[in-house]
Amino acid sequence: LGVTARHLRRLFHERVGATPSFVARSRRAHFARRLLDETDLRMVDVALTAGFSTVRQMNREIQVVFRFTPTELRAKRLRADRLVADGGIRLRVPYAGALAFDDLLRYFRPRAIPGVEVVDGATYRRTITVCGEAGAIEVSQAADGQHLLVVAHLPTIGALIDDVARCRRLFGLDCPAAEETPLASDPWLRALIGARPGVRVPGAWDPFETSVRILLGQQVSVAGATTLAGRLVEAFGTPVAGLGQMGLTHSFPAATEIAEASIERLRGIGLPEARAHALREFATAYLDERIRLDSAAPYEVMVESLLALPGIGPWSAQMIALRACGQPDAFAAGDLGLRRRAATLSGNAEPMAAEALEALAEQWRPHRALAAMHLWLASPDVSRGS
């Protein structure tokens, strides 16, 4: 690799939250777990096939990773909840500075897609897809205020590094908090920032999923959009067995499922015809790579490509840029929640005009997304944001 062992360990600690040796041992243990689940091989054959030198070594490592013996795991293989029965891989994912984790959960809670995501107390849970198979993650905050605790229930450990990176993106761990930017001295925002240190801009586990959730929120309340998202998942998502105890039932629909759906089926979940067409066209454009849902494309180019699609206006384009694409300067000036909060700060009862808010937000560049998060979170009813 061209790096020292010490540097490699540091990289694993920063990006995965575990040592290289733990990841290697976990990989062998997970492969052995699959052999226990899917074959009737003798224990000695499972151990040797999975790369262990002895059955005793396999027993020890499997108990460390899964907290059950191989015999106990094999006994669970006929259970519907075997995906979570082992307790999952536990990781400590580090971050720098303060993190307003409770505020992020407060933002996620009303927007959680039924069946796919759930915020339960101080824990965020969701289904994930790993190498075409279903899994789940659970995320909470460590007591030390310097790590996220991630429990990953995985069908295979092969994509562990990518899964940790997605967690970091979802909770904005690699983005600055507002107090680390010039926003901290802004006369409009400094009181909000002082009251909520550590606010980050939430990202997306899956940019396509988050974009669809945003499109479903056009001209409806957050609660209404969440209801539509749940119907979409039930109609087009993939059922996932064994996660019911977590409140999780489905994987989010793949882009192909939506792109190939009939307008009648899409309307069947409660969408107006125009929005059904817009949703299908968005999925098609995503598959055709006419739009890119990442932060690599320049912000203005990304927004223009979204606006070129039918049924996507400035609000949707800015929200997709902010949440799904991680654009730090995205700002949906037309959002009613932002307009209401800006009016409150200025001492007015009526929502601030979108044009006036757009002009005001010029002073918050290039951190307008952070400013938006503070405005949303400052509202007593955070579900008024989008």
Rank of each mutant, 00 (worst) to 15 (best):
A324L: 09
G115W: 02
W315Q: 06
G347A: 10
C131H: 12
G194H: 06
F66I: 11
P328M: 11
E234S: 10
G17D: 12
L78P: 01
V164N: 05
T249V: 09
D174P: 05
T238D: 12
E72W: 04
M43D: 04
E133H: 13
L11I: 12
P110W: 10
D81A: 12
T238V: 10
L99K: 04
E234A: 14
A261L: 06
R27D: 12
L287H: 06
A359P: 02
Q363I: 03
A349D: 15
H7R: 15
T227R: 07
A229C: 06
E257D: 15
W376A: 05
G337C: 10
A225R: 00
V3W: 15
P94Q: 12
A361D: 00
E179A: 14
A361M: 00
P380E: 05
Q363D: 13
Y107W: 15
E281V: 08
A85I: 03
D329H: 07
E72P: 03
A378V: 07
R79I: 02
Y124P: 02
L48M: 03
R67N: 15
D294P: 06
R79N: 11
R341A: 04
T71D: 13
L78R: 11
E300Y: 09
V303I: 15
A296L: 14
S316M: 06
V199A: 01
L215R: 01
L216E: 01
A317I: 04
G51W: 07
V303A: 03
L183K: 04
R111Y: 10
F22L: 12
D144N: 15
D206C: 07
G230K: 00
V119S: 03
L309C: 11
A308S: 15
I128T: 01
W188D: 04
C131F: 08
A177T: 07
A317G: 07
L377I: 09
Q219S: 12
L345V: 07
M58F: 13
G194D: 02
W205Q: 05
V222H: 00
H153A: 02
R339G: 07
R213Y: 00
V130F: 07
R77C: 09
R280F: 00
V233P: 01
L322Q: 01
A24H: 14
